[in-house]
């Protein structure tokens, strides 16, 4: 019998993700992949997987699943909340061995927004264009997880489960999140005042935040150039400003091209923090 993870309750949104689907943007396929890439990598390393093994990205919590077909190591990183195995709390950010039939439960996230659940061997869904990532915009990759979904677990990797004698836990912050920004391709389309406001104003993540993009609440950013921008390719972390002056941080499942000017780009080192920010949470920008 092959090992599997059987989903009992997915919570609001549980998706299979890996490090994404690069190389197809010219065909209209975006990069996708785990939103908190650091968490996905760490969860994989904790169980001896290669960094790019597929994990389960669980939004907010309320996720319950059963290990079948044999015992299996797993690790939960990213969001901070109660992780229970067969009703008993286990440490997050640590490799834990589930017995055959063991039930894993992820409670509501207290900090951060997205859990990253790695199983030793990786989630073995069929890859599409070389990736097991669910692209929520284009609908590519494994379907969102529903109750009863059986996720095959891949073969044991060569590397053993590493012994870590101290907790490698980096819980997402619960206060204001500081995010480093680099110049964007269209910074000069905005007034000096708008460029200053971007770094001085307190911003909040709106309720309109998903894997495609996170809209920010704050002052309107005025443009110097009034013209229309011909659509151009964007990268993850692009801070795009719509016609109403409101910025949106474009994330992994964004469309390949965007028609609004990008004023700044989130530094790679800050992207994971954006992915873990909760609606209503304060964001402060600084120069990278």
């Amino acid at each position: 019998m092959t090992r599997a993870l059987v989903v009992e309750t997915p919570g609001p949104l549980a998706l299979v993700e890996d490090l994404g689907r690069p190389g197809f943007a010219h065909l209209g396929v975006t990069g996708s992949g785990a939103l908190d890439r650091g968490a996905a990598r760490l969860a994989n390393r904790l169980v001896g997987n290669p960094d790019g093994a597929a994990i389960v990205e669980v939004l907010v919590g309320g996720f319950r699943a059963r290990f079948t077909g044999g015992a299996c190591w797993f690790a939960v990183t990213g969001a901070w909340g109660a992780v229970a195995l067969d009703g008993r709390d286990v440490a997050p950010y640590t490799a834990v061995r589930a017995p055959d039939g063991g039930v894993l439960e992820l409670g509501p996230a207290v900090r951060g927004l997205r859990y990253s659940l790695a199983v030793r061997g990786g989630v073995d869904e069929p890859p599409v264009l070389g990736s097991r990532s669910r692209d929520t915009l284009a609908g590519l990759g494994p379907e969102p997880l529903g109750p009863g979904r059986v996720l095959a677990i891949g073969a044991e990797p060569g590397a053993s489960v590493p012994l870590i004698d101290q907790e490698a836990a980096f819980a997402p912050p619960d206060g204001a999140v500081t995010v480093a920004l680099r110049p964007g391709p269209r910074t000069d389309w905005f007034t000096d005042a708008a460029q200053a406001t971007l770094f001085e104003a307190p911003w909040r993540l709106s309720e309109q935040a998903d894997r495609i993009g996170a809209r920010l609440v704050g002052p309107a950013l005025a443009r110097r150039e009034a013209g229309e921008l011909a659509s151009e390719a964007t990268v993850p972390g692009s801070v795009q400003v719509a016609g109403d002056g409101r910025p949106t941080i474009l994330l992994a499942d964004r469309p390949v091209t965007g028609g609004y000017p990008v004023i700044a780009i989130v530094a790679d080192s800050s992207l994971d923090a954006v992915a873990q920010s909760r609606p209503g949470q304060e964001l402060r920008f600084r120069h990278a």
Binding site: R182, P183, G184, P185, E232, T234, V235, I265, D268
Partner: peptide, 8 residues
């Protein structure tokens, strides 16, 4: 400029 691994 377009981030740490691209140019436009």
């Amino acid at each position: 400029p377009s981030g740490e691994s691209a140019l436009l």
